[in-house]
Design a protein around this nucleic acid. Structure first.
Lengths: 356, 356
DNA sequence: CTGTTAGCGCATTCAC
DNA sequence: GTGAATGCGCTAACAG
């Protein structure tokens, strides 16, 4: 509420011209040590803050942001991330942001490699990375670091890199949440739990699934409740096979009354159970995709954990713009998204996106 | 990404001067019908959008926003609303926003009345209202309507008023969420449920509690599960009395394994149960207050439903600023906040506020 | 009723 | 190394 100090005022106080203050603020060099010192003292004393508005308008440069993420399908995880990105671009339509996608196939490391390789040639001012393959990502980041191009991670973070900011979820914690939900959903009861992974291995968001599993197991070990967790897998690619797998599993394990699916494919199992009128099993899965939303509505999925993909996209853009324009870096580089628990009864509230 | 049209260009196309366009955009009057029509056609055709940055800097006016809410206590509901408000003011620190609070005692209609009566004298440009007493609020709103002063509701909405925007929760839906949680927390199980209201009646967020109750009962009626819900009350003011009430209740109803408290005072019951080492009862309550957070951490509360009070405050300010400065009113006046389900395992993620 | 114009605070260019 | 000058798109005051 206190009136903001302006560059002009700073200049006056420090006994220099506005131009000099600007040069210091932007590290443009060509300033004498004495001026620098004088200005910096005043800057500190007054707590100067950019006026982002004037700053934005006098900046006529166009910024090119490249978004290197797995192919975004509408209604699925990366599609929702993209929604958030687009929303941010819209919000900042007064700034010339040019935004280009560099999609890659998240199941194909070669696709990722070739996509990532072309990124520097496209001359970006900043890059948003949705990392799947750690090694490829590390290579890209090193090149970006050398070129002095800022980048942000969404969804997950690759170790040993120097992003300006990251928006991701704590997957281990998500695993613990699932653990707690399974427990809450069957108290004082001799029910068993099951966790389903997917048969596809190696790549993909497998890292995320792994962290979730370990969080889940960790939780149960700590609780020492003596509950049993059965692990199983389903084949993603063959629907008939999946169906058989599941029915066989349930037949062999009649006490299983809660099933966790640690990726976004809970709907597959939910649909199979529904088609066989099996209604006394609670399913917990991840991500508010179109299919999972439908299953929540139909009641075939009990709960979905969702990590605000649209917020991740939105904030990644926002932070990069701040970094580019105002040269401000947040103190906190790593941001963890809330893990929302969504059931049929609060689903509708998550349709309106309160990004901003 | 397409270059934005400027006022100057609009003026040229419409064959008038920039000043006239500005007058029309801001409904300042003193414009002929023919000019208005010409400009509005061009406006529509080009899809003109303000450049909020340039707009903000050339604005020299100071806006006074009065915030008429129940006394905000740090860590409690209205305190968190206030946090969001302050955050918005900070975000818009480049605009001269002067923000004054007009607190009132939410349990005392006279306090509300006298507070509301003085509001117009304080000459506000806009008002944020946290409504408790419908009749008093309606009177205030009518005065504001007559004076042409825009206002926004947070937390709840009073019928028959004309707010610019409202940010509230669907309390009925929250009641249904509680119903579902109670059910999920005790499947295939002959446990009974209990709902605790508070003995204090009449005023306060009683309306909210009522809606929640009716949502909850509605849910159970629809489900026809044959589950029993016991209703009970506790006295808020006398801790010893509360304790006796509860222990007696549990003694009389040994099958009750889930208790819903439809206001923010779940921690009171949770603490009582904890102090008697009663651990097999799941408590569901409302609002992420300091005390409820603690109980979640300690495990004495199973789940809390939270309606993003900070977001409500933030957006109320944001929307009013947009209404004041850019004369834009959202198409959607009524916004319902997500009802987040918070358990011990995802609590930590709700500490960082992703307002924006 | 309408056109003109002087800033708003900052980034940037160009003389000095 | 440094200061002065210009313009970003918009608002608001003023002259007609």
């Amino acid at each position: 509420m206190a009136k903001q100090v302006t560059i002009k005022e700073i200049a006056q106080m420090a006994g220099v011209s506005p131009g000099t203050v600007d040069r210091i603020l932007h590290n443009r060099g060509n300033v004498s040590a004495s001026s620098t010192e004088a200005v910096e003292r005043v800057l500190a004393a007054t707590g100067y803050k950019y006026n982002i508005h004037t700053s934005a308008i006098s900046l006529k440069k166009t910024y090119r942001i490249i978004i290197a993420i797995p192919t975004a399908v509408k209604g699925e995880y990366w599609g929702i991330v993209q929604l958030g990105i687009e929303r941010a671009i819209e919000e900042y339509s007064d700034i010339n942001i040019q935004c280009e996608y560099a999609f890659y196939n998240q199941f194909d490391i070669y696709s990722c490699r070739s996509s990532f390789r072309s990124i520097l040639d496209r001359n970006p001012n900043a890059v948003i990375i949705g990392a799947t393959f750690a090694s490829e990502t590390a290579i890209l980041c090193e090149k970006l670091d050398n070129a002095g191009i800022p980048y942000a991670f969404v969804d997950s973070v690759v170790e040993g890199t120097k992003p300006v900011v990251t928006y991701s979820s704590d997957q281990n914690a998500c695993g613990r949440i699932v653990g707690r939900l399974l427990e809450l959903f069957s108290p004082g009861y001799d029910a068993e739990f099951a966790v389903f992974g997917s048969r596809r291995t190696g790549n993909e968001r497998a890292t995320n699934s792994m962290s979730r599993i370990s969080g889940l197991l960790e939780y149960f070990n700590e609780r020492k409740s003596g509950r049993t967790i059965k692990e199983s897998k389903i084949s993603v690619l063959d629907p008939e096979e999946s169906e058989k797998d599941i029915l066989r599993f349930l037949n062999d394990n009649p006490k299983v009354k809660c099933i966790a699916i640690l990726n976004s494919r809970g709907y597959i199992i939910a649909d199979i159970l529904a088609s066989h009128s099996i209604e006394d099993i609670n399913i917990v899965s991840f991500d508010l995709t179109t299919n999972n939303s439908r299953c929540l509505e139909e009641g075939s999925i009990a709960a979905v954990i969702c990590q605000r993909p649209e917020l991740q996209g939105f904030h990644a853009v926002k932070s990069l713009i701040h970094a580019l324009l105002y040269n401000v870096r947040d103190k906190d580089i790593h941001h963890f998204m809330p893990a929302d628990i969504i059931i049929r009864e609060n689903l509708m509230f998550y349709q309106e996106i309160f990004i901003n």
